[in-house]
Simulated assay, not measured.
Amino acid sequence: MERLDHLEHLDKHLVDELAQVARETVRDELREQTRKQRRTAMLYAVSGAVALYAGAALALAVGLALALGLPDWAAALITAVILGAVAYVLRGAARPAASAGQAETVAAPPSGLGTPYPPMPPVAPGAPGAPEPAAAPRQDDTDPEQPHHRA
Rank of each mutant, 00 (worst) to 15 (best):
Met1Glu: 02
Arg3Ile: 14
Leu4His: 02
Asp5Arg: 09
His6Ile: 06
Glu8Met: 06
Glu8Tyr: 10
Leu10Ser: 07
Lys12Gln: 14
Leu14Glu: 12
Val15Ile: 15
Asp16Leu: 11
Leu18Asn: 14
Ala19Val: 06
Val21Leu: 12
Ala22Leu: 04
Arg23Lys: 12
Arg23Asp: 14
Thr25Phe: 06
Val26Pro: 01
Asp28Tyr: 02
Leu30Ser: 01
Arg31Trp: 05
Glu32Cys: 03
Gln33Trp: 11
Gln33Val: 12
Thr34Asp: 03
Thr34Tyr: 06
Arg38Tyr: 06
Arg38Asp: 08
Arg39Asn: 08
Arg39Ile: 14
Thr40His: 14
Met42Ala: 15
Val46Gln: 15
Gly48Tyr: 03
Gly48Phe: 03
Ala54Trp: 03
Ala54Glu: 09
Ala56Asp: 08
Ala56Pro: 00
Ala57Trp: 03
Leu60Trp: 12
Val62Cys: 12
Gly63Lys: 02
Gly63Asn: 06
Ala65Phe: 09
Leu66Lys: 00
Ala67Leu: 02
Asp72Ala: 15
Asp72Thr: 13
Thr79Arg: 02
Val81His: 07
Ile82Ala: 03
Ala85Gln: 02
Val89Asn: 02
Leu90Glu: 09
Ala94Trp: 05
Ala94Met: 04
Arg95Leu: 05
Pro96Ala: 08
Pro96His: 05
Ala100Phe: 11
Ala103Arg: 01
Ala103Leu: 09
Ala108Thr: 03
Pro109Lys: 14
Pro109His: 14
Gly114Phe: 03
Gly114Leu: 04
Pro119Asn: 12
Pro122Trp: 03
Pro122Ile: 04
Pro125Glu: 04
Ala127Val: 05
Pro128Asn: 00
Pro128Ser: 05
Ala130Val: 04
Glu132Gly: 04
Ala136Pro: 02
Asp140Met: 03
Glu145Asn: 10
Glu145Thr: 09
Gln146Thr: 15
Gln146Asp: 08
Pro147Phe: 08
His148Glu: 11
